[in-house]
């Protein structure tokens, strides 16, 4: 790579952009195509009239209809939504409390400990958490005989906590205490201050945290697969089971609906976060 001075002089002429790197734009475009091509194909073939997931046989809604009429899919969807709603609400409530306790404060004894404890599910591989819960819940099942949905509810709540906590914490850190101090100066009780000042300001963060928790719970495969008892399939574990058999575009239809939900959620999350700045 022996560069000579005249070459450099030419390159540093008028159109020279210091930010430019050769080939980077091409690779970036390739990257975006790579990310979206499979997803788009998946959605397109969900409207395929034929039974194959590769040969296009015209447009139809038939796979959406068959997915809707499939009782297993109905059951799994209801179960998924129940678990995700429960986990999102509970984890957001406890995460909000924890975020209020661990932000805008001096470095009190145990602060680092609480912080590490809450973020722990992010550090441990899901399969390890799943196995740990399987072992633990198996002995509870033997001891109590209870095999209901409770195990999945509590497991989902636990791993959703850090996801709910982080946006709420971020929002809180950007809020200074002056408004709350002003409220206290005007003889508001601590509860009134919280209800009338802190909560309305914090609301976008809570909403964002709750939605993140909801999506994370809805998407979970590994932990659910290990913790669930017989007949407790959620939509993702039902789909995982189906992938072993011959795949029909019904899978594409279910996936596309799932995708639509996720995209709506991210968009709202994105807008909520943007308003803040």
């Amino acid at each position: 790579m022996a560069e000579t001075t005249p070459v450099i002089k030419r390159r540093r002429g008028r159109g020279f952009d210091v930010r430019q790197q050769t080939g980077f734009t091409t690779i970036a475009m390739l990257c975006f195509v790579m990310l979206y091509a499979p997803i788009l194909t998946l959605v397109v073939y969900s409207f395929n009239a034929g039974t194959s997931v590769a040969i296009w046989a015209g447009f139809s809604w038939r796979w959406y209809e068959s997915a809707l009429a499939n009782t297993q899919v109905q059951d799994a969807s209801i179960r998924s939504l129940t678990i995700a709603s429960f986990a999102a609400v509970l984890s957001t409530i406890v995460a909000t409390m924890a975020a209020l306790a661990t932000t805008r404060t001096r470095n009190f004894p145990g602060l680092t400990f609480i912080y590490a404890f809450i973020n722990q599910p992010l550090m441990v591989p899901e399969i390890v958490t799943g196995v740990a819960l399987l072992i633990f819940f198996a002995s509870i099942k033997v001891a109590t005989g209870y095999t209901g949905l409770g195990y999945l509810l509590i497991a989902h709540t636990a791993f959703c906590i850090p996801f709910a906590y982080l946006p709420i914490r971020a929002r809180l850190e950007n809020m200074d205490l002056s408004l709350e101090r002003a409220a206290a100066d005007l003889y508001a009780t601590p509860f009134q201050t919280f209800r009338r000042v802190t909560l309305p300001l914090l609301w976008p963060g809570i909403l964002a945290g709750g939605m993140l928790a909801f999506v994370i719970s809805l998407d979970d495969v590994v932990i659910t697969e290990l913790v669930k008892s017989g007949g407790q399939d959620t939509l993702p574990t039902y789909m995982l089971g189906q992938l072993r058999r011959v795949v029909t575009p019904e899978m594409n239809a279910i996936s596309s609906v799932f995708l639509a939900i996720s995209i709506v959620m991210v968009t709202i999350f994105f807008l909520l976060n943007r308003k803040k700045t």
Partner: peptide
């Protein structure tokens, strides 16, 4: 300060208990 610390621990307690029961405790059992 002590009162404040205790209050903050109490406020974090529900989250910590859920995590202890369904995330961290089971790891010790493993």
């Amino acid at each position: 300060d002590r009162r404040d610390t205790r209050g903050r621990w109490l406020l974090s307690a529900p989250a910590l208990l859920i995590l202890l029961f369904a995330a961290i405790g089971p790891l010790i059992i493993v």
